[in-house]
């Protein structure tokens, strides 16, 4: 897990906005509350269905410090990372739940020292799909030699962040030099078969807007990414997903500092799409924090909005009978998932 200072992209950060302050900003935004949007559309309150996606945020350690990061991850976050007993508790629940997907995120999840052992254990349980949410540049770290080959051998589905097919927008969001590193990493993955037809090695690109605006239509963006990456860089990928930026943590700080907060919240509210609600990820996802606490999604995790059932709030005392059908915790950040084509960890929902 060692990484030299030359390997990481460390940019100066202001002090983190406290969670209570973030929730206050969300509540005070001059837009109708999220639950009122649902009621106006004639939709019932959100409830969780049986979990099919078991998402684990293994920690906040990352070799990048992206300006939009909802996790507030970075190279200095060495404490908030999942330990092996918590991974073991996750494995027990995965064995019970038999989810379709185990979705591993961070931070850069690969930097957790137990990452590879955990992937092997999940594979032994026969989970059909294992996802690694990868920032791409981590694959180039000296400390991570063999990582790409490891992922390919375990047939891990890689969901890789790439906001744009140009250096200006990519580096503005993710740090100087990240676009070039991302291309290098994508070429390495292609060489292993990722993103190539008939290999079964899925390489999904994930794009977030590099500013206070909504993402483009996913299908047309995918066609443009494919044409440009193929023509200019010889890079192939399986699919592109578009995600909206959530008005929390660093992106909220950016919105406030740039004077875009009110207009962005109004944009999300105006773009509320009832058709995007059915596919919301909170309906089928269980999100586990680095310390084992349970949430309805990764964004709620960052806002410390724990799942509703008080007797099942950690992976150590998980009780399935209390979790299926539980009411989903909501706040105004949820407007980010219902705007326009909708947004989830799997991309557009409408």
């Amino acid at each position: 897990m060692e990484s030299s200072s030359a390997e990481v992209i460390l940019e100066p950060r202001p002090p983190k906005l406290e969670v209570a302050e973030q929730l206050r900003r969300l509540e005070e935004a001059s837009v109708e509350a999220f639950d009122a949007h649902l009621r106006r559309a004639g939709l019932p309150a959100l409830r969780a269905e049986p979990t099919t996606v078991f998402q684990i945020n293994v920690g906040k350690l990352c070799n990048q410090t992206c300006h939009h990061c909802h996790v507030d991850a970075g190279p200095l976050k060495t404490d908030e990372n999942m330990d092996w007993p918590t991974f073991q508790a996750c494995l027990s629940v995965i064995a019970e739940l038999k989810p379709r997907t185990v979705d591993i995120t961070g931070g850069a999840p690969e930097l957790n020292p137990h990452f590879r052992r955990f992937v092997d254990e999940v594979r032994r349980l026969g989970v059909p799909e294992v996802i690694d949410r990868c920032n791409l540049s981590v694959l180039l770290l000296d400390s991570q030699r063999g990582l790409a080959e490891f992922l390919a051998e375990r047939r891990v589905h890689i969901v890789a962040s790439l906001p744009a097919v140009n250096a200006a927008q990519t580096d503005a969001q993710r740090g100087g030099g990240v676009f070039d590193k991302s291309l290098t990493a994508l070429k390495r993955l292609n060489a292993l078969g990722y993103g190539r037809p008939d290999t079964g090695l899925e390489l999904t690109l994930m794009s977030n807007p590099s500013g206070a605006f909504l993402p483009p239509p996913q299908s047309s963006a995918e066609a443009r990414f494919r044409a440009l990456l193929r023509r200019h860089h010889g890079i192939e990928f399986t699919r592109l997903i578009e995600l909206a930026n959530m008005p929390i943590n660093r992106f909220l700080e950016y919105l406030l500092a740039s004077g875009n907060h009110a207009a962005y919240m109004e944009r999300l509210s105006a773009a509320f799409n009832p058709a995007a609600v059915q596919g919301l990820m909170c309906r089928n996802t269980l999100s586990v924090g680095w310390d084992g606490r349970l949430y309805d999604c990764d964004f709620n995790q960052m806002l410390e909005l724990e799942v509703a059932p008080a007797e099942s709030r950690t992976i150590f005392d998980y009780r399935r009978e209390l979790m299926d059908g539980r009411p989903v915790r909501i706040a105004n950040h949820c407007l980010g998932c219902t705007a326009g084509q909708g947004s989830s960890c799997g991309g557009a929902t409408a």
């Binding site: 744009a164 140009n166 927008q169 500013g211 605006f213 909504l214 483009p216 047309s220």
Partner: peptide, 12 residues
Amino acid sequence: AATTLEQGCSKA
């Protein structure tokens, strides 16, 4: 300016 960004256009 906003719409073109939301259509995935670059500043260039």
